[in-house]
Write a protein that binds this DNA or RNA. Structure first.
Length: 483
DNA sequence: ATGTCC
C-alpha cells in the first residue's frame, strides 16, 4: 500500500513517487490530483499499478497518471506511459480492452428552448435507431470480406459508403484512419465478433447523450468549434466492441507466451508486453490500429443513426435540424509520436489508457481548422453530471506527452455500485432532474451511478490548474441513452 | 470494456 509518506508534492496539483521508492523503477512516477482526488484512490491499487508501469523496459521521463485515475488491467486507467523506439515495449494492457474507446461531440444549431418540446421524442428515436446493449448487432450488414477493407480504411470507408462527410473526417483524430492497420494480424474470431457490431453503442459506460452548453470559458475558441451558450449538442461514447476486445484478449495471450524470451522481469503478469521492434510487438500494433479504425467507423455509423433520428423527429418542425461534428477523440490507444525528452526529439510509443491526446497549438498533426487553438479534448462526466470541452496546451506537451484525463473516473467498482444502487430508483432521480433516460439494462444503469464516480468538475479543475489543458465549455445532460 | 470461460 502506497501512502502519502511515499510521495512528494511537486506543485499544487502534481505529486511524485521518486525512483528510490522501489529498486525496479526505471523512472519516477507522477500523478495529478488534489487532496480530495487522492482520497478517492486510497481504496484501490492504482498507485501501485502506476509504480509498476515505471519499471517497463524503454520507459522515458515519467510514468504518469491523470486525476481520474483508478485501477485497471495491469496499467491504471488514466495512465500515460511513453517508451522509446526501437526497443521500448508496447503492451495491450497499456491500451485497454476497449481499443480506441473514445468520444465524439456533435453540435446542432438549436438552442435548448427550441428543442425542449422534442427531447422526449428525440430520446426515443435515438434509443430505437442506435442499437445498444451487450452483444447487440447493428443495422448495417457487411458483405463477406468487407470488414477487412473497413478496418484498413477507417472513416474513409464510411465516407465512400455515404455514412460520413469530408467535414466529419477533418474533425476526427487522424482523419479517422490510422496507417498500418493490418486485418491479416487480426484473428477470425475477432472478425466474427465484429462482423455485425459496427454502428452499435455497446454497454457499460458507453452512452449517447443530448446535452446543452451550460457555460463558455473561452469564447473565441468555442466559436471556432461552433459551440455557443444554450446550444443543444450530442455526445457519443463508444469503442471497438467485441472486435477490439478480442484483439486485446488474443494478444495478451500471445505475448504471455513470448515474454520470457526477451528477459523482462515484470512486477505484474498483467503488464505483459513485447519490444516494439519484435514480430509480436509489430503484429499487436497492426491489429490494434485495425481495431482503432473499427472504432472510428463505429462512432461514424452511430453519427449517421443520430442524424437520421434528428431528421425523423425535427424535419419540418425546426428551421435547422442539421447535426455537425465538432471533434472525435480516442482515449484508449498507443501511438508512435515524436516528443522532446531531455532536450532531444525522440520517437516514442505513447500508451494512453483512459487518457486523451491533448496536443498544444501549432502541432502539425492537428487539422488546419484547429491547428492554432490546440487539439479539442472531450471529457465526459459520469451519467447525469457535466461533460467538458477543453483544448491541449504547451504545458501538456512538456509535462505529459500531450495528454490529459478522459473522464470522471470510478471511485467504486461495478460490483459495489450494483449492490449500493437500485437502477429503477436512479432512473427516477435522473428523470426528476429533467433528464430523459432510455436504458436496456437496469443493473447496467446502477453500475454507472454518479455516486460510483469522482467529481468530473474537480478532475477538470486539476488538469486546467496544472496547465495541461484549458477549459473551453461545460455541457450538462438533457437526455441519456444507455445499453 | 466484453457472447464477464473455449
Amino acid at each position: 500500500m502506497i501512502s502519502s509518506h511515499d510521495f512528494k508534492q511537486i506543485n499544487k496539483y502534481l505529486y511524485e513517487i521518486p525512483r528510490s521508492f522501489r529498486a525496479d523503477m526505471r523512472v519516477p512516477a507522477r500523478f495529478y490530483a488534489d487532496s480530495e482526488l487522492q482520497k478517492a484512490i486510497q481504496g484501490d491499487r492504482s498507485l501501485e499499478q502506476l509504480v509498476n508501469t515505471a519499471t517497463l523496459p524503454g520507459i522515458v521521463k515519467y510514468a504518469l497518471a491523470m486525476p481520474d485515475m483508478h485501477q485497471g488491467y495491469g496499467f491504471p486507467i488514466g495512465g500515460v506511459v511513453a517508451t522509446q523506439l526501437p526497443d521500448g515495449i508496447i503492451s495491450p494492457g497499456g491500451v485497454g480492452y476497449d481499443i480506441n474507446c473514445g468520444v465524439r461531440l456533435l453540435a446542432t444549431q438549436l438552442e435548448k428552448e427550441e428543442a425542449a418540446p422534442y427531447l422526449e421524442d428525440l430520446a426515443s428515436a435515438l434509443y430505437a435507431n442506435c442499437p445498444s446493449g451487450l452483444g447487440k448487432g447493428g443495422h448495417i450488414k457487411l458483405k463477406p470480406g468487407e470488414l477487412d477493407l473497413l478496418v484498413v480504411k477507417g472513416a474513409k470507408w464510411a465516407l465512400k459508403r455515404g455514412y460520413a462527410t469530408e467535414s466529419d473526417l477533418e474533425r476526427t483524430e487522424e482523419g479517422g484512419c490510422l496507417e498500418g492497420a493490418d486485418p491479416g494480424k487480426v484473428s477470425d474470431r475477432a472478425k466474427n465478433r465484429g462482423q455485425d457490431q459496427v454502428g452499435t453503442l455497446g454497454s457499460g459506460n458507453h452512452f449517447i447523450e443530448i446535452d446543452m452548453v451550460d457555460r463558455i470559458f473561452d469564447e473565441p475558441v468555442a466559436t471556432r468549434m461552433g459551440i455557443f451558450h444554450n446550444q443543444v449538442t450530442v455526445q457519443i461514447h463508444s469503442g471497438s466492441r467485441g472486435f477490439g476486445h478480442q484483439v486485446c484478449s488474443d494478444y495478451v495471450k500471445r505475448l504471455q507466451k513470448t515474454i520470457q524470451q526477451y528477459g523482462f522481469s515484470l512486477p505484474d503478469r498483467e503488464l505483459v508486453c513485447a519490444p516494439l521492434s519484435s514480430p509480436e510487438g509489430q503484429d499487436y500494433l497492426a491489429a490494434m490500429n485495425a481495431a482503432a479504425n473499427y472504432a472510428f467507423v463505429n462512432r461514424q455509423l452511430l453519427t449517421y443513426h443520430i442524424r437520421r433520428s434528428f431528421e425523423q423527429v425535427l424535419a419540418g418542425k425546426v428551421k435547422n435540424h442539421h447535426v455537425y461534428q465538432v471533434y472525435d477523440i480516442a482515449h484508449n490507444m498507443a501511438r508512435i509520436e515524436e516528443h522532446e525528452v531531455d532536450g532531444r526529439r525522440i520517437k516514442v510509443c505513447v500508451h494512453r489508457k483512459g487518457a486523451t491526446r491533448a496536443f498544444g497549438p501549432g502541432s502539425s498533426l492537428l487539422p488546419g481548422i484547429y491547428r492554432d487553438i490546440g487539439q479539442p479534448v472531450l471529457v465526459p462526466g459520469s451519467m447525469g453530471t457535466a461533460s467538458w470541452v477543453l483544448v491541449g496546451t504547451e504545458g501538456s506537451m512538456t509535462q505529459t506527452f500531450g495528454s490529459i484525463c478522459h473522464g470522471a473516473g470510478r471511485v467504486i467498482s461495478r460490483s459495489k455500485a450494483k449492490k449500493a444502487v437500485r437502477g429503477a430508483k436512479l432512473r427516477e432521480e435522473l428523470e426528476a432532474c429533467g433528464i430523459h433516460v432510455r436504458v436496456s439494462s437496469m443493473s447496467g444503469l446502477a453500475e454507472e451511478a454518479p455516486s460510483a464516480y469522482k467529481d468530473v468538475d474537480r478532475v477538470i479543475e486539476v488538469v486546467h490548474g496544472a496547465g495541461i489543458a484549458k477549459k473551453v465549455a461545460r455541457l450538462i445532460p438533457l437526455a441519456v441513452i444507455k445499453g
